[in-house]
Design a protein around this nucleic acid. Structure first.
Lengths: 351, 351
DNA sequence: TCCGCTTAGTTATACGTATTACTAAAGCAA
DNA sequence: TTGCTTTAGTAATACGTATAACTAAGCGGA
């Protein structure tokens, strides 16, 4: 009953401040309708049960208040997160940003965000990723696991979370919503090894990392070496890093006996490290020692590295398309499938 | 009142299957307590109002059902997302993965996930990022904006979302929760230009991108050139990419008149592209033409690129620490601050 | 005038969780 | 026996939204 002169001089009584984050309830109050009507209008292009004048009023109030839907509430109500998780060893490995970009390029138009979880290729971190996923962090997963296998991953499928694995070989189709996209790493490494042999090399060493796809790559190399009557020659260092590649190369160069004339790094970053160590040892590439890699990361071209090209963007895009399909109504029932993408041998100056 | 023989032969009536995603309500039913008791026990190490036997029973049931808290529900209840957003031009630019790793390394122990939003340095995508953030996608933001300024960003602070900008210069402290972490790009570029002059170069060109930090870098270069009585010389191409760098270098080399003896790329990827174009033109580096860059991305060392080192991991980590501080109780009130990190000139074989 | 149909909404509830105020029973002391 | 305190919880509600079932009023036709 108080007539306040402050209120009067402020002008219209409807000038009270909008809440920091207006809700549909705030819009409903301001527009004189129910929260349900607001939700209907904001979510449907056509609302037969709301006449145009009411609809317009609601939309104008919402815009005036600067309303943005609360993502968490929407997602809780609809029982989904609209998020894909990408579980990878290390985003700073140049192969993975391109993969993430491919994933995002498909995910974003479908309305999905992409969360990245770095495992550093360590088993306890891979297990942590599964626990994190089970808290409902993502609707679907694209992952590279060095250690976890289907028995440990099946819990995701059982909880309704589809998984697409990035693989180095064909995986048998299974009954669960666990798909894979892969490049035949053994075949690719075999092709690269044949190229090295065709270039006249007979002493060809391979630098490997401890876990992950280098084992499949090593199998392809090894098979072709044996088939050609040559002895496979491995040096292993811990990780997929330039430092590991350089250490392995240094060890190779310090060995007694005849030096290999070619070195095949199981990944580009291993090969780049090997190149650095060779140059530091005063060797010319490919004159004194040829070097090949695997991945075709962006700078491989600049360095003239001969390498196996994996289309990482396409891998990410295909994985995301697979998830989008899985997450459509009825998409969960079909068994897990394996999808192949092709590699390519990029011949450059290092071989 | 029906005695079902099926029920009897099944054995214990408590053998019914656990739901795919058990809730606290399921635990409460199975343990014979209320959902509130379950929540208390699962969230507090000490629960004085719950006796040890009840507590143990609840914990055992939860474990037996494989309960995992529903992240969305928790977050809605507590009005936060436990997520940082990282808004950057392009995750495939080698500078940013390291930044993301720094961010994650601080965010993860504090319980925060990191979402990445790629803008490609385009204004409409930067505006989209703000809209996305306003839907409650993240509690705090670390961002590189090429186009958006404080007037457009203030809405985040007003909605309670702290922002840390990655900057190329000191930013004046402001009243809002908008902080910045920066390296003095002009000073860094000035130092690199002085090095080039000290190496005897008098015709020094600079390759720039259209937007972003290259403008501050150009300012430092330009100031030192003028101070030394030399004429600044710019070539601009569209983006921060190797292709842009190569195109700009090709244009430089095709110009009439005396060729510059040194080229300063406003980023490492621009410099790498310039190196490629120079080599393709049969020029030796640094004999015919010296090349410098800015960033010290991982492969710069391998390529012997002389460059300004920005500690991208430390930038990310500092930004995350700033956000963590902001998001603690009472952290929002203080004005925005600018935090400087130091650059370093990495002298290598390209100069 | 009455009944049925259409229009324009609304009420109620669910999603899963955290937290505050409340409650009942038991135990102890006067 | 009564009253107070302590113990062991629980009921109720909030967070913001989507949606199904329901409802009231108005209009038209018999």
């Amino acid at each position: 009953m108080t007539t306040s002169t402050t209120r009067t001089t402020r002008g219209k009584g409807r000038d009270k401040a909008a809440p920091a984050r207006p809700t549909q309830k705030d819009i409903a109050l301001a527009a004189g309708v129910s929260q349900a009507a607001v939700s209907l209008v904001l979510n449907k292009a056509e609302t037969p049960s709301v006449p145009p004048a009411t609809r317009t009023r609601i939309l104008e109030v919402a815009e005036g208040l600067g309303y943005r839907p609360n993502h968490l509430a929407r997602m809780l109500r609809s029982a989904r997160t609209m998020t894909f998780a990408c579980v990878i060893p290390d985003i700073t490995n140049p192969f993975y940003p391109g993969l993430v970009r491919g994933l995002q390029t498909v995910a974003a138009p479908a309305g999905y965000d992409v969360l990245i979880f770095d495992t550093d290729g360590r088993p306890e971190r891979e297990a942590r990723a599964i626990d994190w996923l089970l808290q409902g962090r993502a609707d679907g997963v694209v992952a590279t696991f060095f250690h976890l296998r289907v028995p440990q991953l099946a819990v995701l499928a059982r909880k309704g979370i589809p998984l697409v694995r990035l693989e180095s070989q064909h995986k048998p189709d299974g009954p669960l919503a666990i798909d894979s996209v892969y490049i035949d790493n053994a075949e690719a490494a075999a092709a690269m090894t044949r190229l090295l042999i065709a270039r006249g090399h007979r002493r060809i060493a391979m630098i490997q990392a401890e876990f992950g796809p280098s084992q499949r790559r090593a199998q392809g190399y090894s098979a072709v070496m044996r088939e050609a009557g040559l002895a496979p020659d491995f040096v292993t260092d811990s990780a997929y890093s330039e430092e590991s590649g350089a250490r392995a190369m240094t060890r190779l160069l310090q060995r007694k006996g005849e030096r290999p004339t070619a070195v095949f790094g199981a990944s580009d970053v291993l090969a780049l490290g090997a190149m650095e160590a060779a140059r530091n040892a005063g060797l010319s590439i490919p004159g004194d020692i040829a070097i090949a890699g695997f991945d075709d990361i962006p700078v491989a071209k600049l360095l003239g590295l001969t390498t196996v090209r994996q289309p990482e963007f396409d891998l990410g895009a295909l994985a995301a398309e697979t998830l989008v399909r899985r997450l459509q109504p009825g998409g969960f029932g079909s068994p897990g499938k394996s999808h192949e993408l092709k590699f390519e041998i990029m011949k450059r100056s290092s071989v």
